[in-house]
Design a protein around this nucleic acid. Structure first.
Length: 409
DNA sequence: TCTGGGGTCCTAGGACCC
DNA sequence: TCTGGGGTCCTAGGACCC
């Protein structure tokens, strides 16, 4: 099928929870956070936190997410500040996802509070009802079952659905009719387009372009000469509301990471190693829970002056045990510390380049053969031990076997 | 104002291979 | 002595998003 025709037949929605972290905080604590109109959710001020989300009332004072908490409190002193309840948010997230799954099997979770749905081909199923009607039913069902308000935007592409959602926020529904994408796009500045961040905005501004209309005045060849093929094509299509990206259900994760910003910068290697151990354990436990092995281990360090550096390694065989992952991470941390030895404000461990555990097992046995054994960074014993400990923790709680604090060890 | 934690995707150089 | 072209993998860094 012709690409333009295929795209014009699509019915894509984005369901985006309104002030998600704020809404969950209110559900968790109805008497406290639930009654505070000016509510800020995020890290506490004395601990270098930032705002994760603020109530719409607090936003009117200029408070927004990612803002340092100290500044947010200065802008809105009467606000109540509460920490994010990550577990409650994850549970609510799963619940929303489950409700949406009843409307179509093609649900893609883009973040904890954003879900793309592809309803293409469901016209018959919904008796030919307009997409806006389906979207409204989705909004009402999610609200009734989870207590959370979502805004639903829709159109023939993810890009248009995303912009429609932004326009309709909060608590709204907006569907851009097929064929009207280009007209819809004309109202936006380039800064309002997803993926056009500060750097790209500045480049475009220097070329005399601030709005979608500004870009529409130039032909594709001119944009290519200015921006290069890839970015020019991207921009040329998006300002016309064209985006052929698919909604993909059950995307496989590409990386799993854990990092920690310290309350006070840390210069002591032993102290850093201790935090590294905990981060490596948490990341590798999640990796095993997903049934994955990682080919690459990366350590990230943020120096006191906010310089961020990283070092990674891809051993000959994938790993999943806490022992092997910590051993690799430790080596990488040493490398980073040798290169620059100043107090650190953040340390992180990331795992990537995944291999499914079941396919990895057969590949490994082929590699290892009858005589080769289990040479390398990770032995069969490491893996078995890691899984046994996972089971113990699952049964008796995460602190049942905290390493380094084993009595009598 | 002094910058969280969790992600995705892209680029570019060097190694290595054919 | 000077000289290929293309492909893949690894690594580090950066832009961007919620």
């Amino acid at each position: 099928m012709d690409e333009a025709v295929r795209q014009s037949g699509r019915r894509i929605l984005l369901a985006d929870a309104d002030a998600f972290y704020v809404a969950v905080a209110r559900l968790v604590d109805p008497e406290g956070a639930g009654r505070a109109p000016f509510l800020i959710v995020g890290g506490s001020a004395d601990r270098r936190g930032v705002v994760t989300s603020a109530s719409y009332e607090a936003r009117r004072f200029g408070v927004h997410s990612a803002m340092p908490m100290g500044r947010a409190i200065r802008l809105c002193p009467k606000a109540m500040v509460v920490p994010v309840s990550w577990e409650a948010c994850a549970a609510k997230s799963r619940h929303i996802r489950e409700v949406l799954g009843r409307f179509t099997p093609v649900v893609e979770q883009a973040s904890s509070d954003e879900f793309y749905l592809d309803l293409s081909g469901t016209e018959g199923l919904y008796g030919g009802e307009p997409l806006a009607t389906t979207a409204t039913r989705i909004r009402e069902t999610v609200l009734a079952e989870t207590g959370l308000s979502v805004t639903v935007g829709g159109g023939t592409s993810r890009f248009v659905a995303k912009l429609a959602t932004n326009v309709a926020k909060p608590s709204g529904v907006l569907i851009v009719p097929t064929g009207e994408e280009g007209e819809f796009l004309r109202r936006f500045t380039l800064a309002e387009l997803p993926l056009v961040g500060p750097k790209f905005q500045e480049r475009l501004r220097r070329l005399g372009m601030r709005t979608v209309e500004d870009v529409l005045r130039h032909d594709r060849a001119t944009l290519v000469a200015w921006l290069g093929q890839r970015e020019a094509d991207w921009l040329y299509e998006r300002v016309r509301g064209v985006d052929d990206g698919d909604v993909v259900a059950d995307r496989e994760p590409k990386s799993i990471s854990r990092d920690e910003t310290f309350a006070v910068d840390l210069g002591d290697d032993a102290a850093l190693a201790k935090h590294l151990l905990e981060l490596a354990d948490r990341a590798s436990a999640d990796l095993r829970e997903e049934g994955l092995l990682a080919r690459t281990v990366t350590v990230k360090i943020r120096d006191a002056d906010f310089t961020t550096r990283q070092a990674g390694r891809t051993p000959p065989e994938p790993v999943c045990s806490d022992r092997a992952i910590y051993a690799l991470a430790r080596e990488l941390l040493h490398r980073l510390r040798r290169a620059r030895r100043v107090p650190a404000r953040l340390l992180g461990v990331a795992l990537s380049q995944f291999v499914r555990a079941d396919t990895a097992a057969s590949q490994l046995s082929l590699l290892e053969g009858p005589t080769r054994g289990t040479a390398g960074v990770e032995s069969e014993r490491d893996r078995v031990l890691a899984r046994v400990l996972d089971e113990v923790r699952e049964r008796f709680g995460p602190d049942a076997l905290a390493r380094g604090r084993t009595p009598g060890a």
